[in-house]
Simulated assay, not measured.
Amino acid sequence: MEIRWLEDFVALARTRHFSRAADEQNVTQPTFSRRIKLLEEEMGTTLINRQTLPLSLTPAGEEFLQLCEQVTDRVRLTRERIQRLTDEQARRVLIAAPQSLLSHLLPQWLADHGLQELVVPYLRATSWLLADYFQALERGECDLALCYWPVERCELELDTSAFRYRVIGEERLVPLSVADGSGRPRFVLPGSRRSPLPLMAYHPRGLLSSAIAAHLARQPEASHFNVVNESIQTTNIKELVGLGYGIGWLPQRVVQRALDSGHLVRAGDTRWDVPLEIRLYRYHSRQHGGLEALWKHFERIGSPLSSLSS
């Protein structure tokens, strides 16, 4: 028994006429009549009194009509709910971001713009390298990528010509150390050849590693490090620095509480800070209703977002 047979029976009970019911169901009358006959065979009894004009239902048909109305109504409501869910899912925008931005910027940013229901974090991206974000944007795995970007000149082996971005904020990578007994940094920049500083470094193919290296290369005073750990995650670096294993550069948003409490202190003055932008990227050719509406919203509100760039 098929749902459309039940819908046919409801239409016939309403119109009391085979031809009109067949027209409502967009089928020929012979097909419609055959389906009603199959329905009666399935139920094992006569449901339609064909001797009256207009047609009438038998007592069994009247009883069966109630079931048909209940079932078809529930199916209709379920279809509508499923369609709404499908439409909502189609409008949702997936945003990829590193763990530090996901934890310390994204929730407040979404709340400020009222985007909590529209924009959904893509949690698989928290340990990606920079190139992974652009590859995911290009193949449609995510719709937006939120990432750090160096303000100063930095050579990155990455072609971004097919992408557009908006700047949504600023950040600084701050060199940090645990404090000694007097509240001073245990490890102090720039170190020396004889006594290089133990460094909690970022992944060598990551953007933050490149940004730090480019910034240090521009300093008049050479710095000296012994890399003792490499990590993609800022939380890992923060934990190791906090345990006193060495120095590390961390986003100021991530470590502000630790700085305020005195648990972590600067390992050097502000000339060692690495300025960053926080950029929101999209793939230029990506067609997505929710994404287009979101991008137009950003264009309307303007500040604090920068103008578009290709």
Results as ranks from 00 to 15, higher is better:
2 E>N: 12
5 W>H: 15
5 W>C: 10
6 L>P: 01
9 F>R: 03
9 F>K: 01
12 L>T: 08
15 T>W: 06
16 R>P: 07
17 H>C: 14
18 F>K: 02
22 A>T: 00
25 Q>M: 15
33 S>F: 09
36 I>F: 01
44 G>T: 02
52 T>W: 05
55 L>C: 05
58 T>S: 01
61 G>A: 11
61 G>T: 01
62 E>Q: 08
65 L>N: 06
65 L>E: 08
67 L>N: 08
70 Q>A: 13
71 V>Q: 06
73 D>K: 12
73 D>A: 13
75 V>D: 07
75 V>A: 05
75 V>S: 03
77 L>D: 11
80 E>I: 01
82 I>G: 01
83 Q>W: 00
84 R>D: 14
85 L>A: 14
86 T>D: 15
88 E>S: 11
90 A>L: 10
92 R>V: 03
96 A>M: 04
98 P>S: 13
101 L>Q: 06
105 L>I: 00
106 L>P: 01
112 D>I: 00
113 H>E: 12
115 L>V: 00
117 E>W: 05
117 E>T: 11
117 E>C: 03
118 L>K: 04
125 A>R: 02
128 W>C: 04
131 A>Q: 13
132 D>Y: 06
133 Y>G: 11
133 Y>L: 06
134 F>A: 08
135 Q>S: 12
137 L>D: 04
145 A>M: 01
148 Y>R: 01
153 R>E: 15
153 R>C: 04
162 A>L: 13
165 Y>C: 13
166 R>S: 09
167 V>E: 14
168 I>G: 11
168 I>C: 15
170 E>T: 11
173 L>G: 04
184 R>Q: 15
184 R>G: 10
187 F>Q: 02
188 V>T: 12
191 G>T: 02
192 S>C: 04
192 S>V: 00
192 S>E: 07
194 R>Y: 13
196 P>G: 10
196 P>R: 09
198 P>R: 02
203 H>K: 04
206 G>Q: 06
209 S>N: 15
209 S>R: 05
211 A>L: 03
213 A>D: 12
218 R>H: 09
229 N>E: 14
229 N>W: 13
230 E>Y: 10
233 Q>L: 15
238 K>E: 14
244 G>S: 09
249 W>L: 07
249 W>N: 10
251 P>R: 00
252 Q>A: 10
252 Q>M: 08
253 R>T: 06
254 V>L: 09
258 A>L: 13
261 S>L: 05
266 R>Q: 15
266 R>A: 15
267 A>G: 12
267 A>E: 10
267 A>Y: 07
268 G>W: 00
270 T>A: 15
274 V>N: 12
274 V>L: 13
275 P>F: 03
275 P>Q: 04
278 I>Y: 10
279 R>E: 08
282 R>T: 15
286 R>M: 08
289 G>M: 05
290 G>D: 04
294 L>R: 03
298 F>N: 05
299 E>D: 12
303 S>V: 01
307 S>M: 07
309 S>D: 09
310 S>D: 14
